[in-house]
């Protein structure tokens, strides 16, 4: 078998004059792909209250609470989203048939205050029957 000694030398020496590979994170940021799964954003006006997102969430990060009827016949809902529990799988966005959940590129979610992990919103909408469709990311 061929034996060499210090065969990494040329490579290492060459890199003395090369730019570092390290990305100095807080100052420089890498560009994320558009498919990145970060913090969720909600378009509550589109929600139909089917609760599929709650049902499919593997980590109980999404809660849709039924708050009773309003005068105009719509149902009031409260959405509680726990960023600390969410594992950013995007299953909720995929299961939602009305596209009211969108994944953003936001990933710097550390907080020192536990309260801030819970995001709540209330809205009213007409309930429609559960139905599912299969989506493809284009």
């Amino acid at each position: 078998m061929v034996r060499t000694i210090g065969s990494m030398f040329p490579e290492a020496f060459r890199h003395l004059w090369k730019k570092r590979a390290t990305v100095l994170y807080p100052f420089e940021k890498l560009e994320l792909t558009y498919r990145y799964r970060g913090k969720l954003e909600f378009f509550d006006e589109r929600c139909k209250g089917c609760k599929v997102c709650e049902e499919d969430c593997p980590s109980f990060a999404m809660e849709i609470k039924d708050e009773g009827k309003e005068q105009d016949g719509k149902t009031k809902f409260r959405r509680i989203y726990h960023t600390d529990r969410c594992l950013f799988c995007g299953q909720c966005a995929e299961s939602c048939m009305s596209e009211s959940i969108i994944l953003t590129k936001e990933f710097e979610l550390a907080e020192s205050d536990k309260e801030k992990f819970t995001i709540e919103s209330t809205y009213s909408t007409e309930i429609i029957a559960k139905e599912r469709e299969v989506k493809e990311d284009g």
Partner: peptide, 10 residues
């Protein structure tokens, strides 16, 4: 520093 630079680090 040299060690790091030769390893393409900072």
């Amino acid at each position: 520093k040299l060690y790091a630079r030769m390893q393409n680090r900072v």
